[in-house]
Amino acid sequence: MIQRYTPSVYRFCARMLRDDEDARDAAQNTLVKVIRNLHRYDPERKFSTWVFGIARNTAIDEQRRRRFTTELGDRDLADTRSSPLEETSRQERAERLHEALGQLPPMYREVLVLYHFEHFKYQEIAETLELPLGTVMNRIFRARRRLRELYEAAELPEAPGVHGVVAGAGG
């Protein structure tokens, strides 16, 4: 169970909190809570939505406890599988999206992270957030619209291709 959920919970926390240490703490606290509260799990519910519901609340707590930062620099976005030309535009897209996501309010960011990165179904997101599906769809639509605006407006720290990779890629 730990082996199975640690990667996805950590990824979710890292994308929500945008800080490696905070993500570690939040992921660890989430899984400790999950194990210690297994007796409270309602089998009617999908297990992953229960786990991510806890992850979400834990990430929110972590966010409140520490100052939330929207700075870049927490992840290595390099992908050496692409050609240099593709790499440039790929990196630029990744950086823009990363920055745009960072500027989204957490309530919008979480639905997009769950759908686009964790590949949750819409109904699973609704179950995770314990909200009606219509409400969740409304939130997702708003989130996507806002994200597109932020993506278009995103300013990169340096000219693309010169300093493309977000800090952390080894230098």
Partner: peptide, 23 residues
């Protein structure tokens, strides 16, 4: 394309062990 361009955060290798210890 932008979503596809973003790589996954790298999960710390020792995290599952740390979680087990904490539990």
């Amino acid at each position: 394309l932008a979503f596809a361009a973003v790589d996954d955060p790298i999960v710390p290798a020792e995290l599952p062990h740390d979680i087990l210890t904490a539990i």
